[in-house]
Each structure stands twice: as structure tokens, then as C-alpha cells.
Design a protein around this nucleic acid. Sequence first.
DNA 1: TCTATATTTACCCTTATGGATAACAATAGC
DNA 2: GCTATTGTTATCCATAAGGGTAAATATAGA
Lengths: 112, 112
Amino acid sequence: MDNNSPELDTIFLAFADSTRRAVLRRLGDGPASVSDLAAPFDMALPPFMKHIRTLENAGLITTEKVGRVRTCELNPEKYAAVEDWLKEQRQQWASRYRKLDQLLKQLKEKDK
Amino acid sequence: MDNNSPELDTIFLAFADSTRRAVLRRLGDGPASVSDLAAPFDMALPPFMKHIRTLENAGLITTEKVGRVRTCELNPEKYAAVEDWLKEQRQQWASRYRKLDQLLKQLKEKDK
DNA sequence: TCTATATTTACCCTTATGGATAACAATAGC
DNA sequence: GCTATTGTTATCCATAAGGGTAAATATAGA
């Protein structure tokens, strides 16, 4: 993925908020309705819905409305764009900095 | 790292801009002065310096001024916070979604 | 010392973001 | 059919973000 990518903009911006990160974490346990997701937060529903829309626009979650209830679900595939970008960064460091090899190994070690 | 982390806020926000991502990419080739970094962009220096400060505040780069010239250098260690966060996300998916095992393997495969 | 270079400071402007409220659907259940 | 529940729409507000210009600073070099 090119650095000049509106997709990366929206994904990273979506990550840059603790409420949204907490929602993503919660959705890791499985799908949930908007009000269930909102419950832990001291925030009115309309602004909370904006966070949901931000996550959806970034492609990090999908939502579907059935009856009154909108159910949200994690879309882990989208994380691949971030993984790819980070991977490219690491590869570039490796090609330049010899002394960073150790760091690279440490980072990879954590993935295991 | 906790989801409720101002550090992650600043790091992800720093990533959420194509100019800043391009600067990071460039710094992967080695240290550079502010004006050298700014050269490829159709942007005045003062706003460009804001990007530099954003990256520095996030801890993604370090800068040092010697004489007239401020030299910027990548600080790859800081990327570990992001790696850790992504790793935690993946682990949570794995504990819940059986069918995501395949995706996990694909993501790890890309790291090699 | 004069001058060109490399920022830096001080403002200004427009748009985006994160929050709030109030009022409006739309559907589930009795 | 009423009523409570679950979103949604419409505004509004304050602050932050990304951009600009003009002028100041500081040092390198002739």
C-alpha cells in the first residue's frame, strides 16, 4: 500500500481514539449491538454512533440493522493494511541500519 | 499497553497523515535535515515543521539541532507499541473466532 | 561585517473532530 | 393500539488539525 493512501489515513485515524480502540477490543469477543457497545462509556448515543461510523467507514467493522437493533462485527481482514505498512517500514530499516537487526528480531519474536 | 493510552493516541494520529508517513519512510533511508525532508512537498516550511513536531511528540523520531541545521532521525523502537497493540488484537480474535486461525497464519506469514 | 541559509515565531484561516441536546422514527411487546 | 426501547437526524459548540504568510532569529561563509 502506498504511503499516499486515504485508506491508511482513515484506518489510523480510527485507531487514534481510546473509545474506538476499546470498541474494537470489545468486538474481539464477538458481535454486539450499538447500545451494548455504548454502555460502558459515559457518552450520549449520537456521538457514540459517530465512533461506530468512523470504524465502519475505515472498514474495521461491519454493521447490519435487523429490526431496531444494529449489530456490529469486527472485520479483522482490514488490519492487514496496517500490518503491511508496518512490515514495509521494518524492511526498509533492515536494508539501511545494520544495527537494527536485533530490534527486528525482537519485534518478530513478539509475534509468535 | 492499555487501550486507554494517550501514547497510542499520539502515535496513531501521527500515522494518520500521508505527509508524515512519507517522512517516516524517507527517514528509513537515514537521518536528514528539516529542509531536505521538506523539499519533496509542496508546502511551506512552518506547517511542515508542525508535522516534524507531531512525529517527535509521538516519539517516532528524534531531532537535534546543530548550528542552523536540525537533523531528524527515525526512532524505530517506538513502533513496538503499535506492534504490541496489534498483537493483542490478533490474540483476542484467536481466542474467540476459530475460523480466523487461517487469517492469523496469513498475517504471520507476511512477517517473514 | 555583510549576506545568504535554515529554521523559528507569531498570527490567521478553514475544516474536521469529539462532544452535547432535542426531537424524530421505527419496531418489539403487552 | 399504546408504550418502552433502539437508533437516527438535526443542530450546536469548543477545540484541534492542516494549511498559509510575514517577520524574526541564528549561524555559516565570504
